[in-house]
Design a protein around this nucleic acid. Sequence first.
DNA 1: TCTAGCACTCACGTTCCTCAAGTGCTAAAT
DNA 2: ATTTAGCACTTGAGGAACGTGAGTGCTAGA
Lengths: 351, 351
Amino acid sequence: MALSDRKKRILRAIVESYITTAEPVGSKAVSELTGLDVSTATIRNEMADLTEQGYLEQPHTSAGRVPSPAGYRLYVNELMDRQQLTLQETQRINEALDLKMEELDRVIDRAGRVLSQLSDYPVFTMAAAKERLTVKRFDLLMVEDDAFIAVVMTDNSIVKNKLIRMSGQLSEPQLQMLSAVLNSSFTGLSREEMAQALDKLETRTAPGAFQLIALVVEFAIEVLESQGQQKFRTAGITHLLEHPEYRSLDKAKPLMAYLSDEGEGTPLPVALDPGKSMDILIGPENVNDALKDTSVVMASYDIGDNMRGVIGVVGPTRMDYAKVTARLSYFADSLTRMFGKELPSPEDSEE
Amino acid sequence: MALSDRKKRILRAIVESYITTAEPVGSKAVSELTGLDVSTATIRNEMADLTEQGYLEQPHTSAGRVPSPAGYRLYVNELMDRQQLTLQETQRINEALDLKMEELDRVIDRAGRVLSQLSDYPVFTMAAAKERLTVKRFDLLMVEDDAFIAVVMTDNSIVKNKLIRMSGQLSEPQLQMLSAVLNSSFTGLSREEMAQALDKLETRTAPGAFQLIALVVEFAIEVLESQGQQKFRTAGITHLLEHPEYRSLDKAKPLMAYLSDEGEGTPLPVALDPGKSMDILIGPENVNDALKDTSVVMASYDIGDNMRGVIGVVGPTRMDYAKVTARLSYFADSLTRMFGKELPSPEDSEE
DNA sequence: TCTAGCACTCACGTTCCTCAAGTGCTAAAT
DNA sequence: ATTTAGCACTTGAGGAACGTGAGTGCTAGA
């Protein structure tokens, strides 16, 4: 049952008013906002209909109306104007991203921070490998008599290194031998496969050499792990406090704790459908309990061929969807353009 | 003017009660807490004295007393018991730090998080080079026909690398030549000196080679910069909300914003005297406005010979100093023991 | 020097009331 | 059949009045 045009106008006015004021909207206000040339009584009737159809809610018998999740859903799907960004804003974004191409993490962190400032909501970011990662190449590099640097280059061209100290000494040819073994037996393997290959190798290799190889392979496994892991980061959580729905600490605390407990074992809040480039979850559509009264708008971007990131905005269900989606999609597009296919990774990595 | 023993006992009782309850303390409560065998009236007299001497304050005529900053100061300097850590806590700390020895940043991040959990206050961390940093050694490592990895090892044994792509091709001997130039002309120099040396080199080197050298040196300068920078990070800001003094958003917001605006240009909140290993700043003793009603307890730890870090706890002036100092100093000591002199860098070396 | 007692002060919680905003319904008008 | 005007009703917010209790300062006596 499609809504009449007038109902849509009314719903839209209510959503937009409530988004900005966070106060229930009454029939009089709607009449003024829509500019409809009908009396408030008529509007009340329409509002009663909308309530019955589940698009609006009443906090209590005699307050104005508030959009229900279904109302927001309809709004973002059909009613909302795509907002234009101002020139300053695009500049701001570009600056944040351009800035001499630092390492991946930092760029994304910075992106999160700026997006949060532009949207007045907290922002989270996440990045993870799409598929299986492998080591493309090992290099060993003598630095002192009793130490060498192991350089590991992954599939997606991330390069990491580690200084390895030995008890004995090692000659250059011996090192080359190790390097040859590593490159022939451990490239192109996933973590589990590497572990298996290492087991097999143990029996038919001299213990001394095996020990060194094991050290390097363990390091490589760590690298793959850290790349494969989803890194969850947040920025601008304090923006939450600016919105009246989080004035009460009981509301704010769980969500803030959830968001700020970054890094360590955060149960991932979201999974974006591979097809979509942008997704909106409104209130109860979120699985996680901490997000039940919260909306999440998120977009994905690609990092090289083999990784994908998600950047998202978190706010009250009455968040300003039009504003947020505009900024978010611009960000995600810029990030993809920046990290996209050709240049598969931030070239510098470190440790 | 030294305080009488009884006055000290009273002050101490008031501070400790107020620390746990966050409620003004009345004469009756003091009488019970101290176990002094005098009437409440006597205690009232003593409290009046203490108020006059500036160690206590009254929120309003007829509430109990609250410690003034001077009161806290006296408490931390003379009255406070050094708390013992429980076995579980030390284990917790050790686990957090041990955990297979990841890179420096992560260890410190994790340390901050655990310390925050143990103390129920937000924690900040900072690390910076003590003196001038230089590059100890360059290595160039061919990876493909048209790309090589530049490995830079600093003074304090931090190793970073970057993949450098070229337009043309390069032979192994040519690469060795570049490496020789870098190691002879750019090691042991500070950032500024490297920039100068690069200028001088330009005139007497072939343009192609010079361009590659410039890329590597620029990278090296970036590395030194990033090491020299003070990295300000925080953990557990939401703990603030658990304390009644930050119930009102007007109080909580500025401080939280200040703390959570990590990374980017945070005006550094603190500078620890080089001599001291632990320092306590109470309320107005803080220079920064956002910290005026806030106390900071911080301790320093050493990272190798050339870097020093600060880890600190932020909370209301009535923070539980005894508890915090105990945990903090244990952390700082452990960190120093871990990163201290001998093994100067995050890379762990295996025996 | 300490104590007991007393009058005084304030913040806080409760209750009660009013007020304004907004509603639903009905009856008349278009 | 819709729309409008009018009206009675509901409800939360805000404010005044009030009692309560914790805590104080002061004074007089031990």
